[in-house]
Design a protein around this nucleic acid. Structure first.
Length: 448
RNA sequence: GUGGGCGUAGUUCAGCUGGUUAGAGCGCCAGAUUGUGGAUCUGGAGGUCGUGGGUUCGAGCCCCACCUCCCACCCCA
């Protein structure tokens, strides 16, 4: 039988796991530093929890799970599949970590103290067609704060992004926008109902150019007058604060737009104070498709790597409301671990010493010398030094080869000579140097 | 979901206009005086040519379908 795994999923070899864990550990460390607490939620959610939260496209990309048992019972299969699907699939795999988190907050509200900050590192699934940097199963690393509308939260998210990518040594650009500004814009040109169409089209500006954006806006049902009314927005120039001043003037009589501008002004004011290492910019074309965002929206791109965004997020004012707990605002970000992996690979930014399973390997000289090797190995392990005894009395070359391939830095020879003298002969595999020492000297050497 | 490309030993690839027993490098295994690796040399194993149909006297090569992976669109981490 030929074996395989489903399209868009992957196995991870030890060497890959070492690099992946380096990413997860780095992100987790930063989350903890900012006082976030971990939670986990199930892979499966009730489909009713997930449906309708990600827009039309999102619903299509949800993996739905067929009911157990006789799922055909009492179902009229002659009707449209859109109607049949919810009857035979009551559960689905989670699409992101934010919606399940909103559900979690509502469900456990009695046990949570607001404002609540949680982090969550778990896989999500999307029935998308796989591509570069796009998988059907991938990990998101989310940090969200819920129960506070303070823009200090937004600032801290930017600081966390800055900290993570500084640690990973990746140059990134953080793009920030605000849904209220986009809504204000739609309002400004007299097409408040076209908000989604406007944002989707505008979002492609740097990819397809202004003319094509105009064409797409036209296709999406905007009049030429409405489209030209957007021109002042495309013409904005200068620093973030300068753009915001120009925008404020444009929104003089626009409540929604003014709210967005004021929020952005406050946030950029905070950001100026903390002076992040990464590049932070106001990008009025940033839209983000997830339609539960209501305030700030973020997106992070690695400089010099074309792989899409590696981190994204925003504020959602009423996600918990859908589950029966209104007026709770939350804001959060999600790091895409798999894309970050691809970026680090492309940039060759992984530390060289990852994936070293053992610090020490004992050559097996056969049963006579085994008791001594076992006790020496136990001593090293007791000192938290990862140690291996070669399991078989194989040829020396084979054992040395093995040490080489596994990148074991120190190989130990404990045969009859060493046993007689109660010493160990240790070889540094990188330099080839070899010396005979006592077990205590070994511990000091390997811990160094 | 739409469009395009790829698929030959473990791996990276070769394979001429369809024509006998499908090749190479790397890797693997075994040797080169049985307590010393990364070098070299010698020998060896290993392929239902992605899967299933079809065309043909004959198919790795041509045609069709399916699958995988990759690329673009859509959308997104």
């Amino acid at each position: 039988m030929k074996c395989s795994i489903p399209k868009g999923t992957r196995d991870f070899l030890p060497a890959e796991m070492a690099r992946r864990n380096y990413i997860f550990d780095t992100i987790r460390e930063v989350f903890k530093t900012f006082a976030f607490e971990p939670i986990e939620t199930p892979s499966l959610e009730n489909l009713s929890t997930l449906m309708g939260k990600y827009g039309e496209e999102g619903d299509k990309l949800l993996f739905k799970v067929l009911n157990s048992g006789n799922f055909m019972e009492n179902v009229d299969f002659s009707q449209d599949y859109h109607k049949v699907a919810p009857k035979i699939c009551e559960r689905g795999l989670r699409y992101d970590l934010t919606v399940p988190f909103a559900r979690f907050v509502v469900q456990h509200r009695d046990q949570l103290t607001l404002p609540f900050r949680r982090y969550q590192l778990q896989p999500v699934w999307r029935a998308d067609r796989p591509q570069k940097g796009r998988y059907r199963e991938f990990y998101q690393c989310d940090a969200d704060m819920i129960g506070s509308t303070s823009l200090l939260n937004e600032l801290e998210l930017v600081q966390m992004i800055d900290a993570v990518f500084a640690k990973l040594d990746v140059a990134v650009t953080v793009k920030i926008n605000n849904r209220n500004v986009l809504a204000g814009l739609a309002d400004h040109i007299g097409a408040p109902d076209k908000l989604v169409d406007i944002t989707v089209a505008i979002d492609k500006l740097d990819k397809i150019g202004l003319d094509n954006v105009r064409a797409e806006l036209s296709e999406r049902g905007l009049t030429n007058e409405q489209i030209s009314a957007l021109d002042p927005v495309f013409a904005l120039s200068g620093s973030a604060n300068e753009k915001l001043e120009q925008l404020a003037a444009l929104f003089a009589n626009n409540e929604m737009g003014t709210k967005g501008v004021n929020e952005l002004k406050e946030l950029f004011g905070y950001i100026d104070l903390v002076k992040p290492k990464c590049q932070v910019e106001l990008d009025l074309t940033l839209a983000r498709g997830l339609n539960y965002y209501t305030g700030a929206i973020f997106e992070v791109k690695a400089q010099g790597v074309s792989i899409g965004s590696i981190c994204g997020g925003g504020r959602y004012d009423n996600l918990t409301g859908i589950f029966g707990m209104p007026d709770i605002s939350g804001v959060g970000i999600s790091f895409g671990a798999d894309r970050i992996y691809d970026v680090l690979t492309e940039l060759d930014k992984f530390p060289a010493n990852l994936g070293q399973p053992a610090r020490a390997l004992f050559i097996n000289f056969g049963s006579e010398s085994l008791p001594y090797a076992i006790s020496c190995a136990a001593k090293l392990r007791g000192e938290n030094i990862s140690t291996l005894i070669y399991p078989d009395n194989a040829k020396m070359k084979k054992q040395m080869d093995y040490a080489n391939k596994c990148h074991v830095p120190f190989v130990f020879f404990v045969g009859e000579n060493e046993i007689a003298a109660q010493t160990l002969t240790v070889k540094n595999m990188a330099t080839g140097e070899q010396c005979t020492v006592t077990i205590n000297e070994v511990v000091a050497l390997l811990k160094a």
